[in-house]
């Protein structure tokens, strides 16, 4: 019975899985502590726009030369339209926290939220 188990799973296997999960957890915890309000639109490696999302009062669209439209809203940024085949970029939805990113790879366009904020209150009145 033990022999059979040895063939399916061995201690070293479990250590590998544990190690991968541990790394994932550390990365996740680090990322979870970053909350940000600065967004970037990156085209072909170049940052073509840096936007402070917390200063955005009205939603607006940024239309790029390559057929991609990015929507900037107070506190969020997302892909609104694209001429790419799979529209994965649009399905990525809205980005609202630091470390989040979405890309339209065929159009070589990436949007992401950078920056770091102290952990703020649940809400701000006024």
């Amino acid at each position: 019975m033990k022999d059979k188990l040895q063939k399916i799973v061995r201690p070293a296997d479990l250590i590998v899985v544990a190690a991968v999960l541990a790394v994932a957890a550390v990365l996740w915890a680090v990322l979870a502590h970053l909350t940000g309000t600065t967004a970037q639109i990156v085209c072909d490696g170049e940052v073509i726009a840096t936007i402070d999302l917390s200063a955005v009062k009205e939603a607006y669209d940024v239309t790029l030369d390559n057929g991609v439209t990015v929507r900037v809203e107070p506190g969020a940024i997302c892909f609104a339209a694209s001429d790419c085949a799979n529209l994965l970029c649009i399905h990525a939805g809205k980005l609202t926290r630091a470390g989040q990113s979405a890309a339209c790879l065929p159009n070589k366009t990436l949007i992401r939220i950078t920056g770091r904020d102290r952990r703020g209150p649940d809400a701000l009145t006024g």
């Binding site: 957890a25 990156v42 490696g45 990113s101 890309a103 790879l105 070589k108 366009t109 990436l110």
Partner: peptide, 11 residues
């Protein structure tokens, strides 16, 4: 995409 990391997807 010509840009840095998809850090948030790694975990």
């Amino acid at each position: 995409a010509g840009s840095a990391l998809y850090l948030s997807w790694l975990p």
